[in-house]
């Protein structure tokens, strides 16, 4: 015999099950996000061109003004190379926006040299070649795709040899450079919609968590970035509020300072 409580439980389950079946084909209109994990882990970090694409829709951007010609110092410390590699790939996306073929080709070579510096040159050689070829043909979509493939291949190669932390630094370098350019563009022609593109608090928390897990990297630049992210967090984590021009300016100052630190020796 089924005890009453169990019978009741089964009935409730059956009833709910039938109700859910009726709606199974349709997604619920609302879910309880408090039940979701609060930790942002292993996210797919957006590429700079994802943000640049959104910026382009807000009005014409003089991308040529944001192309960086400084090739940066040569480092021997792998974490520094990883950070620099991320920023150089981001610079590649800026150069594509500017349709600057010579710079794209230089970046292709630079990416290859940096990838060799951290021991993943082999997986990058075909991409670097493809970047240069696509730039020669002014096939900008092809260059974009190869830059994405480059970053993905670098990170996969690092993950395969359990260098996940370096892989995360590549993403971080790219995100910082992307944010520097974003804030630079929005600062020049402020609009609330442009500033809203900075609303990335979970992504910032993700990088903060990752940096906290890198105590072995005792390089000043890593700690400077960690401190800077603490400064940036309240400026972009505004909930449903708007990000003011002053905050955009401040984030630009911080990311520009970091960008300079990434490409130059301590």
């Amino acid at each position: 015999m089924i005890p009453f409580t169990r019978h009741l439980k089964l009935s409730v389950i059956l009833l709910c099950g039938l109700t859910l079946r009726a709606h199974a084909a349709q997604a619920p209109q609302r879910i309880d996000i408090k039940e979701l994990s609060k930790t942002v882990e292993d996210v797919v970090v957006p590429l700079p061109n994802e943000i640049f694409g959104a910026l382009n829709k807000l009005g014409a951007v003089n991308w040529k003004a944001h192309v960086r010609t400084d090739k940066g110092t040569t480092f021997t410390e792998r974490p520094r190379i990883a950070l620099l590699l991320g920023t150089v790939i981001a610079d590649g996306f800026v150069a594509v926006q500017a349709e600057d073929a010579p710079t794209v080709k230089e970046i292709g070579q630079r990416v290859l040299a940096l990838a060799k510096g951290i021991g993943v040159g082999n997986s990058i050689t075909p991409h670097a070649k493809a970047i240069i070829e696509a730039a020669d043909k002014r096939n900008w979509e092809g260059v974009r795709q190869e830059l994405d493939r480059t970053q993905n291949s670098v990170q996969q190669a690092m993950n395969e040899v359990h260098d996940e932390k370096l892989s995360q630094l590549v993403s971080l370098g790219g995100w910082l450079r992307g944010t520097e350019v974003l804030t630079s563009v929005v600062k020049e022609h402020f609009s609330p919609d442009g500033a809203e593109l900075l609303h990335q608090p979970d992504l910032l928390s993700y990088f903060q968590t990752r940096l906290q897990a890198m105590p072995e990297f005792k390089l000043p630049i890593i700690r400077q970035i960690e401190d800077a992210l603490i400064e940036v967090k309240p400026l972009i984590d505004v909930g449903n509020g708007r990000i003011p021009a002053e905050s955009v300016k401040k984030v630009n100052e911080i990311t520009t300072r970091l960008g300079h630190g990434i490409v130059t020796r301590d």
Binding site: L36, S37, V40, V43, V44, V45, P46, E50, I51, G53, A54, L55, K57, L58, D193, E196, L197, Q200, D202, L203
Partner: peptide, 11 residues
């Protein structure tokens, strides 16, 4: 399962 993703208005 769920994944969290940063999306940008305009895209």
């Amino acid at each position: 399962k769920a994944v969290r993703q940063q999306l940008f208005k305009g895209n």
